[in-house]
Nucleic acid binder design. Structure first.
Lengths: 307, 307
DNA sequence: CAGCCCAGTTTGTCCTGGACAAATCAAATC
DNA sequence: GATTTGATTTGTCCAGGACAAACTGGGCTG
């Protein structure tokens, strides 16, 4: 009785695809090539993945997102994977110690009500821009790290995103200057569904008097072009999360650059394009939130006071 | 030269899966069984679907969402499909003529700026509740119909959702009563990603003094339970779009009902659960936005003035 | 030493054709 | 009219092979 029936906590290949983001074909070919995963079979011969293998697959997935290659990680032991994950975390900005982890705790414990209240309180106290730079961005980074470590899961990340969205959208809407310059169109490429980068950029720009319009995520290139041209925008801003393939980002940005008229600038931000400026001629790579403000200053200096 | 190279406008099976929502396995098995789709092949023997077949697959997909069965629609001609789609539309609420189609035009023409401005203006003029009931809901229905007819596509639907979200979230945030009763937790099941139903419900309830918290879409059952219990909620509200399988909705709702303590009510709304009240004992089926208000009155009558 | 090109390897996706359980329909029964 | 039962439909899974695109690392050049 102390060992629960493994069948009760085992997952079909479709469920594993949903939970890990690894395609069914990929799961089967890894099994063939590397001997992992090694699922059980049900009465009908179909794969049944035990929970611990799914957990290991999640660790592997996270390492692949950080650029590791399958041959080096599929087949490694859980301990080795754990070590590799730690190695991915530390170099990023040194030791992020002493930060206020209260909000992260709320996320991990699913305390949605308290999280919403705490976010609104921080917003009131700090004002929109500092709220984004000093509260939302660090919290997003902390959630990302916790996600790497496997300490938060899809539902927690989701709750976090939703609550931050609520607060940011409300605050941005309150500014509502639709006349200011520059006019910025914000969106992501079709394969990118992370929305927080967009909202943070918008929250930094709107208080400065820029007028932003977000198309949301997953906009086809042709639609970005027509929206930018038809709406008379000065700048198109794209956001890329860490999971977005750098190569694909560069390729897409260069194509979009060629689609847009010269008068419209193209800005790109997020982990996937950081340090890629030299491969992106004619495109402004925005390193972080502060750099967004710098880019705005630059634009205004170039385009005079009237605009 | 008058016929464009068909290879230029043909799609890989992965692209078709993304565009139509039909799984690769399904596309291949239909081809085997019904002789449709009948894609070309590239030099490598891989399927290449011409644009007109993809368009037809989209029509088929829409009909399946409305309960038709594959044997009756896969293999029908475009004209027959068109007739069936018309038949799906008309019975729903008679002829929705004379409605203000200006907003729908803005959606179809990708006029995101004007759409945002028009929505905000309507909100100012009507107030939140009437804005939702008289502007957002009809517009959502119109977009849904246009989607059925194939007159709007993914990008348009997306733009529409995003702009409405912006306006509604801003307006809801402005009310921000976190003390009122009842306390309502809003979300959807993991397979349901449509968010507008939730936002509309929230927009109706908040001005009445209820305190709402939205977990966003795709929340696992166990997380709904723990959030509801831990947050001290009176009511859990679930939203189901037309595409959600009714059977799955009923099954999930009954399971969630059994997970929740008796003191917490369970409300369900949306096309997938309409007219299913008798199959959902212990659950309040909310027919439409007006019925949401009625349900709120009922709750307050039952639970006294203090609460 | 940075940048570029080229062969070799890795890796995800696609293929065929078969199988089966779950969902659905239609007929028969209470 | 409602419910049960048998036949049919339908989506998903399987095996094992194939191949192009992506990546690696070495050698070359400016």
């Amino acid at each position: 009785m102390n060992a629960p029936n493994p069948y009760e906590t085992a997952f079909s290949i479709a469920a594993v695809e949903r939970d890990t983001g690894l395609a069914k074909d990929t799961l089967r070919v890894w099994e063939r090539r590397y001997g992992f995963p090694a699922p059980m079979r049900d009465a009908n011969g179909e794969r049944l993945y035990p929970a611990d293998q799914v957990e290991k697959l999640r660790m592997i997935r996270r390492l692949l997102d950080h650029g590791r290659r399958p041959a080096r990680v599929v087949g490694a032991s859980v301990e080795e994977l754990s070590t590799m994950l730690d190695a991915c975390l530390c170099p990023e900005g040194g030791a992020p110690a002493g930060r206020d982890d209260g909000l992260l705790q709320l996320v991990r414990l699913h305390r949605s009500v308290e999280l919403a209240a705490a976010l609104r309180q921080a917003l009131m106290k700090q004002g929109l821009q500092r709220f984004v730079a000093q509260t939302v961005a660090p919290l997003a980074a902390a959630v990302g790290e916790a996600w790497m470590r496997g300490e938060v899961d899809v539902p927690e990340e989701h709750l976090f995103t939703e609550q931050v969205q609520n607060v940011l959208r409300g605050a941005i809407g309150a500014h509502a200057s639709i006349a200011g310059r520059p006019r910025v169109l914000l969106t992501t490429f079709p394969e990118e569904e992370h929305v927080l980068g967009l909202l943070m950029a918008e929250a930094m720009l709107v208080p400065e008097g820029a007028s932003c319009l977000s198309l949301g995520t997953r906009t086809p290139l042709a639609d970005i072009r027509s929206a930018a041209v038809g709406g008379g925008f000065d700048i198109v801003g794209l956001s890329f999360s860490i999971a977005y393939p750098a190569r694909q980002a560069i390729e897409g940005l260069l194509e979009l650059r060629s689609l847009l008229p010269e008068g419209i600038e193209l800005w790109a931000g997020g982990a996937a394009v950081r340090d890629k400026q030299k491969r992106l001629p004619g495109i402004r790579v925005v390193g972080d939130l502060e750099d967004t403000m710098a880019a705005l200053q630059d634009w205004r200096a170039r385009n005079g006071a009237e605009g």
